[in-house]
């Protein structure tokens, strides 16, 4: 069940992203002429991102996601980058921690669920304004840059029906879950890195970043869950928060390696 108040905020943020996209796509807006790298001002890139935030949180230390992006230089020092990436993760029993999943009865602690796992898929659409550093010799889209990556992501849980739940979280023992709605996430990352050219058209990109989830559509403050406090009112929310917590914390430190084709 999604809180409707969050929906308004989300629509607002989505609209902001759309406006940015529309603005940047407008070919008539040219601040300065740009030589590009040997005349090439656009590129497509395939990249691998290692999300390393869980070095300090629980879960797999490094997650890898795959993505591709398109970048267009607007002037010598500025470019817009539009990307898509996705990652999927299987959350096994041991990755899910929740003290509230046990109850005390008859002198012992009992789990409310059996051991099993679920999957989540996180897809992101990103818009990144990038500022190329002229003092480092950069000429967009070549050279050192920093930027602000704004992303709109969708977290989808799957294969959760293997989970068996017991009371008090389910009405009956052995109840199965219905489908879990996706969570919309809006996050921002500060990135910095550089692109070097291997040939006149092929480049290698290395980026470091630090990300933070700004807003998501679940009720409550995500940080409460990151810190481990219980909040989940339903089993569905429990899955969503667990996955989201994992996903968000992994974004804290990121390292990306990409291969670009300039044109």
């Amino acid at each position: 069940m999604v809180n409707n108040q969050g929906g308004y905020k989300m629509r607002f943020l989505r609209n902001i992203l759309v406006i940015i996209f529309a603005f940047s796509a407008n070919n008539e807006i040219q601040a300065q002429s740009n030589p590009g790298f040997m005349g090439k001002t656009g590129l497509v890139q395939f990249d691998l991102t290692g999300l390393m935030g869980n070095l300090i949180y629980e879960g797999p230390a490094v997650k890898v996601n795959y993505g591709f992006s398109y970048e267009k230089a607007r002037n010598q020092n500025f470019a817009w980058n539009f990307g898509y990436s996705q990652t999927n993760q299987t959350m096994d029993y041991n990755m899910i921690v929740g003290e509230y999943l046990t109850y005390y009865d008859n002198g012992q602690y009992n789990n409310v669920r059996d051991k099993s796992s679920f999957d989540y898929l996180f897809s992101e659409f990103k818009v990144t304004p990038k500022w190329y550093n002229a003092s480092q010799g950069a000429v967009s889209p070549y050279g050192a840059y920093n930027g602000l990556e704004l992303s709109l992501g969708f977290l989808n849980i799957s294969n959760a029906n293997k989970e068996q739940w017991r009371q008090p979280l389910s009405s009956d023992d052995g109840a199965k879950l219905n489908s879990i709605p996706s969570v919309t996430v809006f996050s921002a990352s500060y990135i910095f890195g550089g692109r070097r050219m291997v040939t006149d058209q092929i480049g290698v990109d290395f980026t470091l970043g630090m990300g933070y989830t700004l807003y998501q559509t679940l009720p409550g403050n995500l940080m409460d869950y990151v810190e481990g406090d219980s909040y989940a009112a339903t089993i569905e929310e429990f899955y969503q928060y667990t996955a989201l917590k994992h996903m968000s914390s992994s974004k804290l430190f990121q390292a990306k390696l990409g291969v670009s084709y300039l044109f």
Binding site: P35, F37, M38, Q76, G137, V139, Y142, G143, R196, M197
Partner: peptide, 14 residues
Amino acid sequence: NQDLLRAHIYKTIY
């Protein structure tokens, strides 16, 4: 390095 030189040479000509 080579790519820096090429970027700037082209930029100058442009």
